[in-house]
Design a protein around this nucleic acid. Structure first.
Lengths: 147, 147
DNA sequence: ATTGCACATTAGAATCATTCCAAATTTAGA
DNA sequence: TCTAAATTTGGAATGATTCTAATGTGCAAT
């Protein structure tokens, strides 16, 4: 676990450089860094209240937007559900398990670049890319038999 | 242009086989087949009213859902905007041009299969996959000079 | 062709995530 | 420290979608 005191310090965290720091943004950012999952704004709100009981939901939305605009976290959307927020900044997709509701990061295979796979329109400059998958995790019978 | 009269006829359109056909579902389906673009439910509603002025918005939502469930059209989502509906059933992504608001189908390059590119979680069975791109079309200076 | 009934349609109300508002507060640089 | 500009806040507003419950209809079986 990292030192939370420095998570939001510009001197230690270059991702936040240039972003005006408030107590609220720091609290929201720490919530996202603490569990590395994909909470909704409402879930971030609930968690943030532990360290800052007076924070408002509107502020959580504002902070999340600021962090997303700044590129410090990513926003991910599943169909029309509430937006979720993801601290993983590497290029990856998201698998949404219909059974458990869990969201799992799906890395690209080594060496793959998305733009290599798609017939992009001429002159297209990509600002944002989302790959989302929905499905079920099938419990496969083990291929190895008992001894 | 195809014969609209047969668009919704089970005998001529196997995509609809097994789906109970109503005047409203037919109107909605024809709207989607006529322009091959990506209208929202509201836009489908506006267009459908031309051929059926009494159709209701709730019904348009119902029909679109039925068509999507049946696999006759696809639903596509951009961030948290209104859902859009797409008659293209081939595997492809969507590019959303920030300037014009246009949506452009983005085919996969020949021979590419998405599952080849992603490190899927073990046992994952994919029911739905969305690839969405947002960006700008840059007008590139022509490489050829005037004669 | 008629019928029965499970499924569809409809208008309007309800929901719910998100955004807007305008006043009070806070940040960060001079 | 002081100040301007940005941020926070609670509550109201928005807007896409879903729900409700009453009415209507496709179509399989007769």
């Amino acid at each position: 676990m990292e030192n939370k005191l420095t998570d939001c310090d510009h001197r230690h965290n270059p991702k936040l450089k240039g972003l005006r720091m408030t107590r609220q943004r720091c609290a929201v950012y720490q919530v996202l860094m603490a569990h590395r999952d994909h909470p909704t704004a409402g879930e971030v709100y609930d968690r943030a209240k532990h360290s800052m009981p007076t924070i408002s939901l509107a502020t959580v939305y504002n902070c999340l937007e600021a962090l997303v605009q700044h590129g410090a976290v990513r926003q991910v959307n599943f169909e029309r559900e509430s937006s979720r927020y993801c601290p993983n900044l590497t290029e990856h997709g998201h698998f949404h398990d219909e059974k458990s509701g869990t969201i799992i990061d799906v890395p690209l295979k080594k060496g793959i670049h998305l733009s290599d796979l798609l017939e992009l329109p001429a002159g297209a400059q990509i600002d944002n890319l989302e790959i989302t998958l929905r499905g079920k995790i099938i419990h496969q019978p083990s291929l190895t038999t008992h001894p």
